[in-house]
Amino acid sequence: MFQVRIHGRGGQGVVTAAELLSMTAFTEGLHAQAFPSFGSERMGAPVAAFCRISNTPIRTREPIADPDGVIVQDPTLIHLFDLFGGLSKEGFVLVNSSRTPESLGLSAILEKLPTGHVRTIPATEIAREKIGRPIPNIAMLGGFAAMTGIITLKALAWAIHTKFPKALAEKNIEAAQAAFAAVQHAIAGEPIAARGEELMV
């Protein structure tokens, strides 16, 4: 079982991100479950969504208290909540920011997790460029795919195509590709570039 918690604010597509992550895993032939934090939150309020991915059918439906991955779509939440509570020792953290994890005050979690398991990507900037709107969710999933290897970019693209109308899907896939490339560059020791090169899907 691989459990992901996505934090963000209402209007940033947090719930859609969890849904797409589950659809992507499902497309890979895995079992998956996604659900929102069930709030009555309005636009701008902190929200969370959850996704479980497993080789076997998933039975529990409780909120994820011990995630393997945490996606933070809005860095302003970092010091407001315990976003990384229960995170596994081998867990992953991906934060939407053009700054480094250190400069965001993530030193404590950097020390706890293996090297390369805490990263930032400028997902809002990528989204603004590729989609024309500052909705970082899909770019974050592209980055998360590159970082964790839990899902492939190809399956993510298929899920995006299933969810959105063609024109919007294509723009979102571009955003996912750019984020994926940005993280790959970072893994290869290269500086993260917001304008990552295109990858073939």
């Binding site: 691989f2 497309t27 032939g29 497993s54 080789n55």
Partner: peptide, 15 residues
């Protein structure tokens, strides 16, 4: 302590 279960390696969209 819980460690992440290794999932089947991604093999691309099944169908």
């Amino acid at each position: 302590m819980k460690t992440p279960i290794q999932l089947t390696p991604p093999k691309g969209p099944v169908e």
